[in-house]
Design a binder for these strands. Structure first.
Lengths: 118, 118
DNA sequence: GTTGAATCTGACACCGATGTGAGATTTTAC
DNA sequence: GTAAAATCTCACATCGGTGTCAGATTCAAC
């Protein structure tokens, strides 16, 4: 599949897909003329990248962790190194903290909304 | 209190405090010489601003919503306009979505960590 | 008064993800 | 073969929050 189709199927802009590749989060074959050619699995991969980005992980960490993740067709290609595990644990803590913060903020907004409604 | 003390007490940089004021999220009196002078309530206010920023609200929205919030000493100074309520509701939806996304991401990270540990 | 610390304004820099535009090349459809 | 659509690379722009530096001014303490 070419980059345009991958963009359409994932809802991610062509520009972003190229960016993901530049940051080693996404790989592609190249056609004789240099055009990118993606495997079917790229769709899931891109969606996953978006999710991790939305969760605040940096491109580098995403590129590090992707090979350690269970693929669509089986087990992970690699196992996380101790260093990576440490990084991921820190990310998880940060995420937990973010979730708590978001919950508190939601309560605050709810209160303002309720005050205006009541 | 002066800006340096406010910075120390909130852990927010002097630069950011000035930025908050520029974006109308924070107000200050001025001394004869032009130095900022803050009331005691500014401490809570700054912490609240940080929380809202961390939750992804823009400076403009924060400035809009702050007057509608219950202050330390009583009820809100203003009531949210219908427009603002609409905005805040959208923010709440976005926050709910973010929380879900973060939970999913956390599960993914947990899986990778568990795989590496096991 | 003098001096050192604090504060002032204003400007420029950065990061990360994405937008955008130019100009060249490739692919696709007829 | 030719025209149109898609893709290529490269570079510069944007946004929000913050860092940082420079030069001027003010405050606090002695």
């Amino acid at each position: 599949m070419k980059i345009g189709e991958l963009s359409r199927r994932t809802g991610v802009s062509v520009r972003s897909l190229r960016y993901y590749e530049q940051k080693s989060m996404l790989v592609s074959e190249r056609t004789a003329g240099g055009h990118r050619e993606y495997m079917e699995a790229a769709v899931d991969r891109v969606i996953l990248i978006q999710q991790l980005l939305a969760a605040g992980l940096s491109g580098n960490k995403i590129a590090s962790v992707l090979p350690c993740m269970r693929d669509h067709d089986g087990g992970p290609a690699e196992t996380a190194t101790p260093w990576l595990v440490e990084q991921l644990t820190a990310e998880r803590d940060r995420i937990n903290h973010s979730i708590d913060d978001l919950r508190r903020t939601r309560e605050i907004l709810d209160e303002v909304i309720a005050t205006a409604a009541g």
